[in-house]
Structure formats: structure tokens, C-alpha cells
Amino acid sequence: MKKYYISTLVMIVLFTSSCVQPTRNINITLKLHLKGMKDVQRVGVKGNDKPLSWDQGLPMNPIIKDSLYTVTYTTKTGYNFTEIKFTVDDKAELKGQPNRRLDFPNTNRVVYEATFDNPAAKAN
């Protein structure tokens, strides 16, 4: 009887172990345009999947100060999308509006170009 319980437990553990959604690496490049902003100190991006989080923004690097910023990172996910919001000087964009959504159903590389606080964006 004891053997039966142990083997049942082992089978349950093995069965459930094999039922985790597989993940893949997605390489994401973000480009953010700022319009009419001066003396910007920090630009970042927050989001769902690591290395992003909704607590701490991932810093973006200036290509043209106060105008164009970029960051490239790799995220490991099982989903076909992720959600993000940009921040400037720790202030998040699109207040009260939905997050930006990046879809990647058939690709492992996404280039997403956007303007701060403007939901219209160009994804490649």
C-alpha cells in the first residue's frame, strides 16, 4: 500500500513537471521619441516580463539627448505578446490608458518605435 502511494505521488510530480508552458527568448529593441521635452534626466521602460517590471524602469540610452532613446533586451516568455509603458524622469506615460502591447506570434525579434505619451506606434 505504501509503495502504491509513493509511486502515485512520483507519477503526479512527473506528470505535472512536464506540463509547464515552454518558453523562448525574444530580442526586443525599443526606440522612443520625445517631443518638446528639455533637460530630461532619466528615460526608462516598465513592463510585464523580465528584465522589465512595473516597479523599476529599465534605463534607456540616449541617441540624441532629449529627443531619441533606445534599449535592447532579451526576455524569456511563453506568451506571444508583452506589455510595456515608457517613463521619463520616473513619470509613466499614457496615464489611465492601456499599456502598449508588443505582439510577436511568429518571430523572435521585435523592433518597436514609439513617441512618448502617444499610443500610436510603429513595430517592425
Binding site: C19, V20, D103
Partner: peptide, 11 residues
């Protein structure tokens, strides 16, 4: 879009 197969738990 969550890309989950039957009885699969999210990653």
C-alpha cells in the same frame, strides 16, 4: 495570445 496548450501551466 497566452499560447497555452491543453492542461499546460503558464511559464
Amino acid at each position: 495570445d497566452n499560447n497555452l496548450h491543453l492542461f499546460e501551466v503558464a511559464f
